[in-house]
Amino acid sequence: MRAEQKSGSLMAGPYAAFLLVFAVYPIAFALVLVFLQWDLVTVPTFAGANNIRLLLHDGRFWRAVANTFVFLSIHVPLQIVTALALALALNRQLAGRSFWRAAFFLPVVISGAVVAILWSHLYATDVGLINRLLVKIGLSPVPWLTDPRTAMPAIAVMVTWKNVGFYVIIYLAGLQYIPRSCQEAIEIEGASAWQRFRYLTLPSLLPQTILVVTLSTINGFQLFIEPYVMTGGGPLRRTYSVVLYLYNNAFAYQKMGYAATIGVALALIIGIVVFAQRRLIGRAEAL
């Protein structure tokens, strides 16, 4: 109807304009910035493929990418295992189920900045809570955030801790979808608890596992506030993240073209990794 046309355009028009200015334009301009050199003060100059060439040979950038893979290799499997274990525990006849769920979910609602500050105190070498516990049970303290070998794993464990409640909810939702009749059938078949898990529960939760892998991977590539607050990227740049590098290029070094190039590269890497993961999981399932 004409009246409907009019109200429709009026009601959706502002959003369309917003999308143009704050989504379409930035995406297009990101691709332009890749070919510019610009400090935001002087006039931008055309840089050809300089930014790309620079990036391909930029040891700091690739260090950050490698760091992210170190992070992911710990974070993703740990996230799956912890989320799955807690979800299975919660999926039973339980007293106070909503209390447990709320407890696990608590860190999810807390700001990442707070969690980072809190954990830098927990991880502190001399006065940190964790080392005090270690000393109490007779072990020697570990310089968690200052040893290049332990810094990134420490951050990965912390991020896993912060997000696990979120993934528990995803797995719990998946567990609700396993039909009662299937569970009864496999019990009648005489399967042990482990067999039930291996042949019914785990395969049924594949969609949720794919989701957990994808989301925690994307999350890993977006790592920023944790190294920014806890380590500043150190020691020996072992916790330098791609977004931290992007931020420093834009904010500290005023290199807009290069920072945008990092952003585009990061988007590409995320796309490739997520796509590859899905293919791999798909193939593993087919076997």
Binding site: V21, A23, I27, F29, L33, Q222, A250, A259, A260, G263
Partner: peptide
């Protein structure tokens, strides 16, 4: 991903 548009948005 948000990182792609972060810098262009900032310059805007």
């Amino acid at each position: 991903p948000g990182q792609l548009t972060l810098i262009p948005l900032y310059t805007l």
